[in-house]
Amino acid sequence: MFGEPHWFRWVRRAGLAVFALIVLVPLWVMITSALKPLRDVQAQFRWLPTEWTLSPFVDIWSTIPLGRYFVNSLVVALGATLLSLLVAVSAAYAISRYRFRGRRLFSLAILSTQMFPGILFLLPLFLIYVNIAQTTGIVLVGTLPGLVITYLTFSLPFSVWMLVGYFESIPRELDEAALVDGTGPLGALLRVVVPAALPGIVAVAVYAFMTAWGEVLFASVLTSDSTRTLAIGLPAYSTQSGVYWNQVMAAGLVVSVPVVAGFLLLQRYLVQGLTSGAVK
């Protein structure tokens, strides 16, 4: 392609090697440090452990309540993902299959919420949740449901946008045929559109999960000691006891592997969704 000159092949190989190094060096440090004994990470940096050990992976669970953080993060992320999917699928179905007043306005408004600085609605949201608790007794500050409700709206705009793109690519005749057969609109959505858009829905689910799993700002205000998530527990641990860097790296790996694996497995669908959404 491009009829590129012969020498460019070497430029390209060298360039790609540099990029690979940029990505790999921090990952290398993360992985090898997690396999180092404590004395290695307290001394001068070295590329390889003096002695390979798995004990950091054992110790992390007792040095901090990592298990509890992990479960909290899992509950919050799964809850936010499932609810966000329900809400996003239903909204995307309305936008892609119906022509109604306010359709464009809604699509634009929901996307524009993406540009708000989180800090802008963090303070008011905190106050609103405090006041909801006072008037109705539903406690949303310091509880997991509060985080679930908040997080599911974070992934919503992008999820709706991507799903509209997916749904548009499904021939309308398919669900119209189902409607003629006597299934209601809900039946058409669940039996025809959702199965046909399954790859897109899975990609959106991964995205929603990643969003909730990695969020820091709101978790720092909306969690209490017993509902602390990984996003707060881990950094707090690393700043307080920076000496246990081998454990910090091990914990970082443990919490990253599920999301990174999920993302990399499904990146193809995410890219597709990105382009199908952008083409419209």
Partner: peptide
């Protein structure tokens, strides 16, 4: 490979970097 930094949870990636930047023990 190039997508890994983006897929890592923000805090895990940044914590790793704060280790790399440590004065006496960092890379």
């Amino acid at each position: 490979l190039f997508l890994v930094p983006y897929a890592l949870p923000a805090y895990a990636a940044v914590i790793t970097w704060s280790f790399l930047f440590q004065r006496d023990t960092g890379l």
